[in-house]
Computed example of a mutant assay.
Amino acid sequence: MKLENNTVLITGGSSGIGLELSKVLIQKGNKVIICGRSNEKLTKAREIEPKLITYQCDLSISEECINFSKKITEKHPELNVLINNAAIVNKTNFLNTDTIVEMAENEMQTNFMAPIRLIHLLSPILQKNNKPTIINITTGLIYTPRADYPFYNATKAALHSFTQVFRKQTENSNINIVEVMFPAVKTPWHKGKPPKIAISAEKAVNEMIKGLEKNKKEIRVAGAKMLYIVSRIAPKFAFRKVNSLEDEE
Results as ranks from 00 to 15, higher is better:
Glu107Cys: 00
Glu171Ile: 15
Ala184Tyr: 09
Tyr152Thr: 13
Ala184Met: 00
Val180Arg: 00
Lys186Met: 07
Asn130Val: 14
Ser173Pro: 04
Ala158Leu: 04
Glu207Lys: 06
Glu213Trp: 06
Thr170Arg: 02
Pro188Leu: 03
Ile134Cys: 08
Lys193Thr: 15
Glu202Asn: 06
Ser200Cys: 01
Thr110Phe: 09
Thr110Val: 10
Gly140Glu: 05
Ala147Phe: 11
Thr144Arg: 01
Arg146Val: 14
Pro145Thr: 15
Thr163Ser: 12
Ala198Tyr: 01
Lys196His: 01
Ser200His: 03
Lys131Asp: 13
Asn129Thr: 15
Phe162Ser: 07
Glu179Val: 15
Ile125Trp: 08
Thr170Ala: 04
Tyr143Leu: 02
Ser123Gly: 07
Asn130Glu: 10
Thr144Phe: 03
Ile209His: 04
Gly211Val: 12
Phe182Arg: 02
His190Pro: 03
Thr187Met: 00
Gln109Phe: 12
Ala154Lys: 03
Thr155Asp: 01
Asn215Gln: 12
Ala184Ile: 07
Met181Gly: 08
Asn206Phe: 06
Val185Asp: 04
His120Phe: 13
Gly192Asp: 04
Ile119Trp: 08
Lys210Asp: 12
Asn176Trp: 03
Glu207Asn: 08
Ser173Met: 04
Ser173Leu: 05
Gly192Arg: 02
Pro115Val: 14
Lys193Val: 15
Leu212Ile: 14
Gly140Tyr: 07
